[in-house]
Simulated scan of single mutants.
Amino acid sequence: METSELATMAVAVMTATVTGAATAVGQSAGTAIADALHARLALTERGRAALDTLNQAPEDPAAQDTARSVVQAEIEADPVLRRQLQLQLTAPGTNATGSLLITGSQVSRSSIALGPLTINKTPGGRAVIASVATLLLALVALALYGGTRLIMADDSPGSSQDDSARHAVRALNVSEVKQVVPDLTSMPSGWARSGSLTAGKDEEGGCSGAQARFNTNNWNDGTSTRTVWAEFTVWSCASAALTAKGFEETRSGVANNNKAREISLPELGDQRAAITHYNIDVDETTAVALLRVGTVLVELEYQPVPDDSGWSREFEQLASMAAARAQQVQNA
């Protein structure tokens, strides 16, 4: 699939999530796709500008074109991102090689379903449909005439594709680990740094680490605002196996905390876990996300968990951003 086609479909999903037009993309995959792309674009000034414009005017063709251009550039620069979008945006037909497969398409009075994407027939939904209609008609027409091929990543033993180019795995030094830790420009609006970034190397274990803490007063329980903290701890060891061992040890330790409960987390990195537990030190519930991306282990501690259910989306957004940064630094 051409990068322009992937970018068009990706921006359509992003637009649908902003306008509320998308009711289902797989099982909440639309939100996961949009969150991952938001985290990715938030890493650059151009990406952040495109996001702001799209969020303010999601139905504006110019805003969609700008976002499409930025997303296409990201796809062309990162084979890993390209593969992930191919797998997610063409599901459930991701195993179709050499053919075009659109499954589960349905039209009802209130919605239109195209493969895994369901779009409401609202004004916002119609704008999304208009943005991808030309692309879909072209693909269907080509399929009817047998003239199109959906080129998917080939993971077979005989494949000539270089997996290392799509998913680089290498140990990071202290300077590189610091780049994985988010900065203020990549954090959501309203967050501030609490203290300075710390970094160093565990000489005994040979792992490089960095840590930073942020806070926000955006959460409001109806009577007063409350401060929420997000702490990122990042480690990179000499091999993925050593980092995987650290992941399991850390997950086991968190799972043994008081009132620990596993919660869902999008498919991020090579290993992932999310757990809430009662933190006696602050007398509040804390949420912890653990992610292993190659040789990088990211621990995100988010506390206290607000009563507002919207916290989980921000929690997942922060985790997605950290995972994207971990892979991006390893790809460099």
Rank of each mutant, 00 (worst) to 15 (best):
G98S: 03
D270E: 09
T44K: 13
E204V: 13
S105A: 14
G246H: 03
D183I: 05
W311P: 00
M9D: 08
D307P: 06
A42L: 07
M321E: 08
P116R: 11
I33S: 01
A96G: 12
R149K: 14
A36N: 14
G20Y: 09
T97W: 11
A73V: 07
L142R: 15
R325S: 00
E316P: 04
L135K: 10
Q106Y: 10
L6P: 01
W311F: 04
E249C: 07
P182S: 06
N217L: 14
A153W: 00
D78R: 06
A141D: 15
A255N: 11
F232G: 06
L51G: 02
A143Y: 10
P123N: 08
Q179F: 02
T276Q: 08
A57L: 03
H277W: 12
A63E: 07
E249D: 14
Y145D: 14
E176H: 06
A24D: 10
D155L: 10
S28N: 15
A153R: 01
N220W: 03
A39S: 09
T17I: 14
S159Y: 00
P304Y: 03
Y278G: 06
R226S: 14
E316A: 12
R213K: 15
R109Q: 06
L89K: 02
A168P: 15
L37S: 06
A319R: 09
L54F: 04
T23H: 08
N331S: 15
A240E: 13
A192H: 14
Q88K: 11
G310S: 04
F214N: 03
T250I: 09
C237G: 13
Q86N: 13
P116D: 13
T276K: 02
G98A: 02
V128M: 00
A32C: 01
N279E: 12
V181A: 05
Q330E: 10
A49H: 05
T94V: 13
D270G: 07
T227Y: 04
M14D: 04
D78C: 08
T94I: 11
E301S: 12
G26R: 09
A273F: 13
V174A: 05
L89M: 11
V11F: 09
A230P: 06
G158T: 09
C207A: 00
V329N: 01
E5A: 14
L114C: 05
V80S: 12
I75S: 03
A36C: 13
E262L: 11
V177R: 01
A143Q: 15
G269V: 03
A50D: 03
D270A: 10
C207V: 01
I275W: 04
V18S: 02
G146S: 02
Q86F: 08
A24H: 00
D78M: 08
E249R: 09
S252P: 05
G209T: 05
D155F: 13
P182R: 01
E203N: 14
L144C: 08
T250C: 08
A96N: 13
T31R: 15
A210L: 07
A42E: 02
S108K: 06
M9A: 12
M9N: 04
A319D: 14
L150V: 15
R193L: 00
F247W: 00
G209K: 02
A289M: 00
L51A: 01
L172I: 10
R48N: 00
G158F: 04
S156G: 10
V18G: 00
R272W: 07
G246D: 05
T97V: 14
E316G: 07
A168G: 11
E76P: 01
L136W: 07
A323W: 00
V25D: 06
A255P: 09
L300P: 11
E203S: 15
A255H: 08
I102Y: 07
N220L: 03
